[in-house]
Simulated scan of single mutants.
Amino acid sequence: MDHVDITEDRINADVTSKLVSSPACGAISVFIGTTRDNFGGKKVLRLEYEAYIPMAKKKMMEICHQIRDKWDIHKIAMVHRIGVVPVEEASIIIAVSSPHRKESLEAVSFAIDTVKAVVPIWKKEIYGDESSAWKENKECAWTS
């Protein structure tokens, strides 16, 4: 029922949405995190992600279980891209289906916040001058 994946391939919102589609549900909520072209006044050329894949998938599955404990959810799909992610392309897509919209909307918001806080995936920003910086998520549990 739940689908988690980490891939170096380009990810697609339509494909991820279809993974959670169901005639029993009136709502599919989707979050798409994309690479923006700026941060802190600097031009961003691309992001580069690294992950400890076995642990990342395990943590993503744990988030699915937490979602199911909190909301009446039908299906969950989380796909995170690693490697190089150019500007405007998706680095993460989360889709959740539920009988009613409130549950899926709340679950998607919880999912992205929790992924950023506990899943061992690291992001490096590459800037216009080819300098770079590893970025910490302010939600990240191990930086508190």
Results as ranks from 00 to 15, higher is better:
60 M>G: 05
100 H>S: 05
85 V>F: 10
106 E>C: 13
85 V>M: 11
71 W>K: 04
58 K>S: 03
60 M>H: 05
82 I>L: 06
113 D>W: 07
48 E>R: 15
69 D>M: 14
61 M>F: 02
68 R>T: 05
89 E>L: 07
88 E>H: 14
90 A>M: 02
66 Q>V: 09
75 K>S: 08
99 P>N: 09
86 P>M: 03
60 M>L: 13
44 V>L: 12
107 A>Q: 04
51 A>P: 03
103 E>P: 05
79 V>S: 06
107 A>K: 07
50 E>Y: 09
104 S>Y: 05
100 H>M: 03
86 P>R: 12
108 V>G: 02
58 K>P: 00
64 C>V: 06
83 G>F: 04
106 E>N: 15
54 P>W: 03
106 E>K: 15
66 Q>M: 11
50 E>K: 13
112 I>M: 06
104 S>W: 04
83 G>Q: 03
64 C>G: 01
56 A>C: 07
54 P>T: 10
76 I>H: 02
103 E>A: 15
94 I>T: 08
100 H>G: 05
59 K>R: 12
108 V>Q: 02
80 H>R: 06
94 I>C: 12
61 M>W: 00
93 I>W: 04
79 V>P: 04
73 I>F: 00
75 K>L: 01
76 I>M: 01
76 I>G: 02
72 D>S: 15
53 I>W: 05
103 E>K: 12
62 E>F: 01
58 K>R: 08
67 I>D: 03
65 H>T: 09
53 I>L: 09
74 H>Y: 13
43 K>F: 08
68 R>G: 11
110 F>W: 10
71 W>R: 05
52 Y>D: 05
46 R>W: 08
74 H>M: 12
106 E>I: 07
90 A>L: 01
54 P>S: 08
62 E>H: 10
82 I>N: 04
